[in-house]
Amino acid sequence: MPAAPVPATARALDQAGLAVGNIDAVTSHNPFAVNDIVFARETGFPLERMNTHGCSLVWGHPQGPTGLRAVIELIETLALRGGGRGLFQGCAAGDSAMAMVIEVRA
């Protein structure tokens, strides 16, 4: 389960025609901190640049509303930075996962 967001992220980035180096911010929807550590190690995205407002663990075990909150926080982070590309990713009930690339233009 900790590694499930990695292939989901690869698919989302591929569909967007981007690489992880094109991403300015990442938020995650994970039930355990180890998920973010695995994501950072596997993708090379700096752990300290993830979850600017804290991950969904802050609000309790992840569920749909906490995922939506993470997407909104990602949009806010990018807007405050003057725009950019963001990635939302996380596990979805066990060994499945989801990922979404968004772009905010200033």
Rank of each mutant, 00 (worst) to 15 (best):
G86H: 01
T52G: 08
G67F: 00
R69W: 04
L57R: 09
V71R: 00
A70I: 08
L74T: 03
R81Q: 15
V58M: 10
R85M: 12
Q63P: 00
G64E: 09
G83P: 08
G86T: 07
I75L: 06
I72F: 04
V58T: 15
V71K: 02
A79R: 11
P65Q: 00
P62E: 03
S56V: 04
G60I: 07
V71L: 15
T77Q: 06
L74M: 05
T66V: 05
I72L: 13
E73Y: 03
H53M: 12
F88Y: 05
G86R: 09
I75A: 14
A70Y: 01
L78S: 04
G86C: 04
L80C: 08
G84E: 10
G54S: 11
V71M: 15
I75C: 11
G54A: 14
H61N: 10
F88V: 15
H53S: 14
T77K: 03
T77A: 13
G84T: 12
E76R: 14
L87N: 00
P62V: 07
G60D: 08
P65T: 02
F88N: 13
L78N: 05
W59R: 03
R81L: 07
E76W: 05
T77L: 03
G54V: 07
P62Q: 00
L87A: 02
L57S: 09
G67M: 08
E73R: 04
T52W: 10
R85W: 02
V71Y: 04
G84S: 07
G83C: 13
L74Y: 12
A70K: 04
G64N: 05
H61P: 10
P65A: 11
F88C: 11
A79P: 03
G54R: 14
L87M: 09
F88I: 12
Q63G: 11
R85A: 12
I75D: 13
T66K: 00
E73V: 04
I72K: 11
P62K: 01
P65I: 05
A70M: 14
E76N: 10
L78F: 01
G86F: 01
Q89L: 02
G60E: 03
T66N: 13
R69D: 01
L80G: 13
I72G: 05
G67I: 03
G60V: 09
I75Y: 02
T66C: 06
T77V: 10
L78C: 06
L80Y: 11
G60L: 07
L57E: 00
E73G: 01
P65M: 05
E76Y: 06
L74W: 07
A70L: 11
P62R: 02
L80P: 03
G54H: 13
T66Q: 02
G86N: 01
E73P: 07
P62H: 01
H61I: 06
L68S: 06
P62G: 06
L87F: 11
A79C: 02
H61A: 12
